[in-house]
Design a protein around this nucleic acid. Structure first.
Lengths: 187, 187
DNA sequence: GCATCGGGAGAACGCTCGTTCTCTCGGTCG
DNA sequence: CGACCGAGAGAACGAGCGTTCTCCCGATGC
C-alpha cells in the first residue's frame, strides 16, 4: 500500500468514525483497526491526532464546497434556483443512513472552545456557505442580509435534522427560503 | 455547607466549564477545584459524571423554557409579538461574554452519538422550543409548518452565532421571522 | 545467497481521568 | 471530657489513550 492510498483510507475511516461517535470518543487504535493502516504508517502521514482531525475537516470542507457548487450547477439554472437547490442537496444528505448533523457544527461544539484551529476551520466553512448564498442573492439584486438569512435556515436545518434524526427540516427550510426570496426587493 | 447549596454550586460550576470547554475536556477534579465542593460530596450528590452531565442539561432545559415563556410574557403582547420576542431574547444571550453556542447543540455534537440519554434531552429541548413557537402560530391561525420554520431560524442563529462569535444572527433571524409571519395565510 | 532496509503487528510508556480509599480533624452527643 | 460521626483534602487505583519502540518478516540490491 502506498502512502497516498493509506492517507485516503485513514481520512475516510476517521471521518466516518468521528461523525458517528465524535472526535474524542475515537482512539487512534480504532482508526488503525478500521482502516487497516498500521500505526507506524498512520503517524508517518499524520504526526498527531490533532493534525488528523484538521485534515479530516479541511478535506470535508473542500468536498462540501465542491458538492454545493456542483449540485447547483447541475440541477439549477439561475441564481434563484441555485439558492433553493442548496436545500435539495441538504435533503439528500439528511436522508443518508447514520446522518448525525453537520461535522463542523458538531466538532465546533466538542473542540471549538479548546482548539482554536478547529474553531477557525468551522468559521471559514460557515462563511463559505454564506458566501455561496451571497453570490446568488447578489445576482438577484437582493439586499446582502438575505444571504445571511438563507444561511441561518440552512444551518438551522442541519442542527435540527441532526438532533431529531428527521430529514424534514430540509423541505421546511426550502419553503421558508422561497418566501424570503420572493419577499426580497429588486431583482 | 449543606447538600443543597453544594448541589447548586456544582451545577453552576459544571455548566460554566462545560459551556466553555466542552464536557470531556473538563475533569471532575476541575469541577471540584472550581466549585470548592469536595470530591466526596460531589460523588454523594452526583454518583457519576454521566449523571452530572444529565443534571446540568436538565436544569438548563428548565431554565431556558422558563426564560422563554417569562421573557415572552414580560415583553410582548399577543402571539405575533411573542414569537418575535424569542429572537430578542436570543440577542441578549448571544451578547453575553463567553457565549459559545447552544449547550444542547454542542453537547449533542460531542456526546449524542454515544450517549442516548444526552441525545434524548437535546431532542426534547428542541421540541420544546418548536412547541413554544407552535403555541404562537396556532393562536395566529397560521399553518403548523411555520412553527418549524421559526425554530429553524432560531437554531440556525444559535449555531452561527456560536461559531462566528457574532450576535448579529439574532437580528437577521428576527427580520426573517417577521417576513415569514407576515406571509403566512390566515390570522 | 546474503546483508540491508522498510513496513506491519502490537507491546510498552507516560499521562490523564473517573472513581474510591485513607487519613485527619472538628463538632456533637452522652 | 471523651468517643463517634461526618466531612475535607488529597493520595491511590485502574482503565483508556496518544505516542513511541521493539521485534520480525519479506523484498531488494550486490
Amino acid at each position: 500500500m502506498d502512502a497516498e492510498t493509506a492517507e485516503r483510507k485513514v481520512l475516510d475511516t476517521a471521518e466516518g468514525l468521528f461523525d458517528e461517535r465524535g472526535v474524542q470518543a475515537v482512539g487512534m487504535d480504532a482508526i488503525r483497526t478500521a482502516s487497516g493502516v498500521s500505526l507506524k504508517r498512520l503517524y508517518q502521514v499524520f504526526p498527531s491526532k490533532d493534525l488528523l482531525v484538521e485534515a479530516v475537516l479541511r478535506r470535508r470542507d473542500e468536498a462540501v464546497r465542491a458538492a454545493l457548487t456542483g449540485h447547483g450547477a447541475r440541477t439549477a439554472e439561475g441564481p434563484y434556483e441555485r439558492a433553493l437547490a442548496v436545500f435539495d442537496w441538504l435533503a439528500g444528505w439528511f436522508a443518508e443512513p447514520g446522518f448525525r448533523g453537520c461535522a463542523f457544527i458538531n466538532t465546533f461544539g466538542e473542540l471549538g472552545g479548546v482548539t482554536p484551529v478547529v474553531a477557525g476551520i468551522a468559521r471559514d466553512h460557515k462563511e463559505a456557505l454564506r458566501a455561496y448564498f451571497a453570490e446568488q442573492t447578489d445576482a438577484l439584486g437582493a439586499p446582502p442580509v438575505l444571504a445571511d438569512q438563507l444561511a441561518l435556515l440552512a444551518n438551522g436545518a442541519m442542527a435540527v435534522a441532526g438532533i431529531t434524526g428527521s430529514p424534514e427540516p430540509a423541505a421546511q427550510a426550502k419553503a421558508a427560503a422561497r418566501v424570503l426570496l420572493d419577499a426580497a426587493p429588486a431583482s
